[in-house]
Simulated scan of single mutants.
Amino acid sequence: MRLRRCGPDAVLIEVSSLDEVDAVRSALAAADLPDLVELVPAARTVLAAFRPGSADAARLSPLLAEVDLARRAVAEPREVVLRVRYDGPDLELVAQTAGTDVDGVVALHTGAQYKVAFCGFAPGFGYLVGLPDELRQPRLDNPRKRVPPGSVGIAGEFTGAYPTASPGGWRLLGHTDAVLFDSHRDPAALLAPGDLVRFEAVR
């Protein structure tokens, strides 16, 4: 684990895996750090931002020295169900690559439980881990210039849903009508790191 100062009031914690990111994020969220204003997990880092002038940043090193990086979070997570119509343009490609048929892809994707590892790329975009091995496939060779909002896709070890229209190279399985990001809602993003997510097929 490595700590790097990011200006006077933030610290970037570098670790080696998504599990370690989860352990650090969970430990800091549960710690007595009254001036901690934001935790931003990513694939291999957690950014901890504090109120200007706070002394809490100086407490991170001894606090993190006690964190068991191999221990998973024990707090009760929030559960979110995303209803998906599996009609994506890459279903056949995914099925062929996985050695199954379209129904098999749907069964695999809906049969797993996922966890939001971190958010990024676009507001409200959650990177979900827990994808079955058969569905771990590369991005498209030629990314699309526009992926419709609500599109549900897979890439590498992740699955997720696009909150807004954007370019993207993930293999698309279907779409959801869930509002993943709404700036007028509190919180604006439907998904947050640590949430558990299930996909449910609809006709």
Rank of each mutant, 00 (worst) to 15 (best):
R2N: 12
R2E: 15
C6H: 14
C6Y: 15
G7K: 12
P8K: 07
D9R: 13
A10L: 10
V11T: 15
E14Y: 04
V15L: 03
V15T: 12
V15R: 12
S16W: 00
S16F: 01
L18F: 08
E20L: 05
A23P: 04
S26I: 05
A27T: 00
A29D: 14
A30L: 09
A31K: 02
D32N: 07
L33S: 06
P34T: 02
L36R: 03
L36S: 02
L36E: 04
L39Q: 00
L39S: 00
V40C: 01
R44F: 04
A48N: 00
S61C: 01
P62M: 02
P62F: 01
L63P: 01
L63V: 04
D68Y: 00
D68S: 03
A70S: 14
A70T: 04
R71P: 03
R72K: 06
A73Y: 01
V74A: 15
E76V: 15
R78H: 11
E79C: 11
V81K: 02
L82T: 12
L82R: 11
Y86G: 05
Y86Q: 05
D87H: 06
G88K: 06
P89M: 06
P89D: 12
L91P: 06
L91R: 02
E92K: 09
V94K: 15
V94L: 08
A95E: 13
A95D: 15
Q96L: 08
T100M: 04
V102S: 07
V102Q: 07
V105P: 10
V105I: 10
V106G: 06
L108S: 08
L108I: 07
G111Y: 01
A112Q: 08
A112F: 01
Q113Y: 00
Q113A: 14
Y114P: 06
Y114M: 05
V116Q: 04
A117L: 01
F118A: 03
G120E: 04
F121Q: 01
F121C: 04
F121S: 02
F121P: 02
A122R: 15
A122T: 14
P123L: 10
G124S: 04
F125N: 00
F125G: 00
G126E: 05
V129C: 12
G130V: 13
D133H: 06
E134K: 15
E134P: 13
L135S: 02
R136I: 00
R136C: 11
Q137P: 03
Q137W: 01
P138M: 08
P138T: 09
N142R: 15
P143G: 13
P143R: 14
R144M: 12
R144V: 13
V147Q: 10
P148C: 07
P148T: 05
G150Y: 08
G150N: 11
S151M: 10
V152E: 07
V152M: 03
V152N: 06
G153Q: 08
G156Q: 04
E157F: 03
F158Q: 13
F158E: 03
T159W: 05
G160N: 10
A161N: 06
Y162S: 09
P163Y: 14
P163W: 13
P163D: 07
S166C: 06
S166E: 08
G168F: 11
L172Q: 07
H175V: 02
F181G: 07
S183M: 11
H184L: 13
H184M: 07
P187N: 09
A188E: 11
A189E: 03
L190S: 09
G194C: 09
L196P: 07
F199D: 12
A201H: 03
